[in-house]
Design a protein around this nucleic acid. Structure first.
Length: 325
DNA sequence: CACTAGGACAACG
DNA sequence: CGTTGTCCTAGTG
């Protein structure tokens, strides 16, 4: 079908970003049952109109996602805001990443004044829909004791999620064909690969996974927004080391193997691969001779400036931002 | 051996 | 001028 996930231009980015597909949204539609009442969702997956796309949701998500990090704030506050800008389908601060959602439904007619009221109610619907999805996912995570981000799952988490999704939507059990797969493996699989493994419900499972991935993505963007002062790409100033480190930390799917949070709330992070981080820093600053010795010296300069310190329990290669948020 | 701490000074915008 | 890069000595596990 035409609304499936596009292949990504940068294959180092497994995450489908805006990858809410038509299928996903059909699932989404059907997920709108109160709580986890299984009876109310029964047999909803068998119908022939399976591939119809609720275009309202499509444009909802387009608009919502382009409003960056404010979306979740709006979800929680549910406050009416001024009319939203027209969707740009761009991620303003990540120009190297391409949006990958179809958007034929929108932009065909310019937004007139008389349509602004409509926009406002649309916004409220968006917020409600996304809020509910996020709530549902959160509930499922608590129930299953798994991470909301599928990328972080190990194979047993994958099995838990499969069992739960199959149960919720009365799908035939397909866990066996997804055995030994990590969350990353699962995220890397295309819809076609899902169907190959499970002809009956591969597409459904893929669509559900899409929703989870998108939710995790939005959550990440939201957190990124809280750290926006660390985003060097918006200012012309030369980047500081602490900003650079935060940038790496904000992209765990890219750099999680060389630097990662130990405690994001407290700003505690660990450099897992000192040589790699130093090389990245050298690349950014055009300093080919950069190494961890020099990089760590610069970090130590931050001690008296109150930007970075060693955590209370000092550990090798572990540092802490003094002002996490 | 790799990491930590910090002094000293040069280089750079 | 402040920040960082470079080099260094000394100390730690």
């Amino acid at each position: 079908m035409s609304n499936s996930v596009r292949s990504l231009p940068d294959d180092s980015l497994y995450r489908p970003r805006m990858a809410l597909t038509g299928d996903s949204l059909c699932q989404l539609d059907r997920t709108r049952c109160p709580g986890w009442d299984l009876d109310k969702t029964k047999a909803s997956m068998n119908s022939a109109e399976h591939t119809s796309i609720p275009s309202l949701y499509l444009s909802c998500f387009d608009m919502l996602l382009t409003q960056d990090t404010h979306c979740l704030a709006k979800v929680s506050e549910a406050s009416p805001t001024s009319a939203a800008p027209m969707p740009l389908l761009e991620l303003r601060d990540e120009p190297e990443q391409c949006p990958i959602i179809d958007s034929q439904e929108q932009g065909l007619s310019p937004c007139g004044i008389e349509e602004q009221e409509e926009d406002r109610s649309l916004e409220q619907v968006q917020s409600m829909v996304v809020g509910e999805v996020l709530k549902d996912i959160e509930t499922a995570c608590k129930l299953l004791n798994i991470n909301p981000d599928p990328f972080e799952w190990n194979s047993s988490h994958v099995q838990k999620w499969l069992l739960w999704t199959e149960h919720l939507y009365r799908l035939p059990h397909a866990g066996k064909v997804f055995q030994e797969l990590s969350g990353k493996d699962l995220c890397d699989m295309s819809e076609e690969e899902f169907r190959q493994r499970s002809p009956h419900c591969g597409d459904t499972l893929h669509a559900h996974l899409d929703i989870w991935k998108s939710a995790a993505w939005m959550k990440e963007r939201f957190t990124a927004g809280l750290w926006s002062e660390a985003d060097s790409s918006s200012s012309g100033q030369p980047i500081h080391l602490w900003q650079f480190l935060k940038e790496l930390l904000l992209k765990p799917h890219n750099y999680g193997r060389c630097i990662r949070w130990l405690n994001k709330e407290k700003g505690i992070f660990k450099i897992e691969d000192s040589a790699h981080v130093a090389r990245l820093w050298g690349l950014r600053k055009n300093r080919p001779a950069m190494n961890y010795d020099k990089l760590s010296r610069s970090i130590r300069q931050y001690y008296k400036k109150g930007i970075i310190r060693k955590p209370d329990v000092s550990q090798r290669l572990v540092y802490q931002f003094v002002h996490p948020v």
